[in-house]
């Protein structure tokens, strides 16, 4: 059970990981609570409007007559799922592009990386806004995940490619090449196991990006605003002028939860990144 051992080591020696563990556990509990929610998130005016946080409604209620706490349990779950959908799709693209570019080299590598770098420097938000604008009303949160996935791979493809390039120089690759193994199998058998930990770390980073993008697009009203997410929570609060009307908890709840989720994921990312990178490990030892 190496994974359990790694988690135990990290909990013991890395304070960032401990914090990430607490934050993400909170998020996980909230996601699970959505399964036993007493309220249907799609129904409005089921509780009294605009009541501040209390024992009965820990995060208060909204101007749409919804319990914010229970509504947020669905929102967190959906935002997280969206992140997973995006990450899954963009991982597949990133791995394929990264492995092909790194392994094949030559003109194919040049072309793929030219495309890749173009997407890296391009301002994606205006393009996503254009897309969201045209799909308005037809967008559900699954298609949003797919769209974000299609745009979310370039950074990681580059990273995977550079890993493959360094792996290619190692002795075992050359041994495999000389012994006549097909390049494809070298890639799958020899390189993928080394690339996977990086893929895992970038997955978290990609989820951060995608959940953040959802917040941005939702606030602009360009996502499916009927599905509870962190972004749509803010959208509805803005629609009802929550801040001006003094219903501060309606803004505070999703903001707080967003901060916990983002910090948790980020701390997990940097902790794991350091664990798998021998150079940073060495530095840790050195300091």
């Amino acid at each position: 059970m190496t994974i359990l051992r790694i988690i135990r080591d990290l909990l013991k020696y890395d304070s960032r990981f401990r914090l990430a563990f607490i934050f993400l556990s909170t998020i996980l509990i909230m996601m699970l609570l959505s399964l036993v929610s007493p309220y249907n998130p799609n129904k409005t005016f089921v509780v009294a409007m605009d009541t501040p946080p209390s024992l009965e409604h820990p995060f208060g209620t909204s101007s749409r007559g919804q319990d914010i706490f229970w509504w947020m349990t669905f929102a967190v779950r959906n935002s997280f799922l969206l992140g997973m959908v995006t990450a899954a799709l963009s991982r597949v693209i990133a791995i394929i592009v990264g492995l092909i570019a790194g392994y094949e080299g030559g003109w194919l590598d040049k072309v793929l990386m030219a495309i890749n770098d173009s997407f890296v420097v391009m301002p994606l938000l205006p393009i996503l806004i254009l897309l969201g604008f045209l799909l308005r009303g037809k967008m559900n949160f699954f298609t949003l995940g797919l769209i974000l996935g299609v745009f979310g791979w370039p950074w990681d493809a580059r990273l995977i490619r550079s890993q493959v390039l360094s792996l290619k120089e190692r002795a075992f690759t050359r041994t495999a090449v000389y012994s006549g193994t097909h390049p494809f199998w070298i890639t799958i058998h020899e390189h993928l196991p080394f690339v996977l930990p990086i893929v895992f770390a970038t997955t978290i980073n990609n989820m951060l990006w995608s959940i953040g993008m959802e917040v941005t697009l939702s606030v602009l009203g360009l996502s499916d605003v009927s599905t509870p997410t962190i972004g749509t929570a803010l959208f509805w609060a803005n629609q009802h002028g929550a801040l001006v009307a003094g219903v501060w908890w309606w803004i505070a709840a999703p903001t707080l939860i967003a901060i916990i989720l983002f910090l948790g994921l980020y701390l997990l990312f940097s902790s794991i990144n350091e664990y798998i990178d021998p150079r940073t490990r060495l530095r840790l030892i050195g300091g």
Binding site: K12, Y13, Y275, I285
Partner: peptide, 10 residues
Amino acid sequence: RAYYRTEAYG
């Protein structure tokens, strides 16, 4: 006598 002493993850 000069040694390198390192410690990581226990």
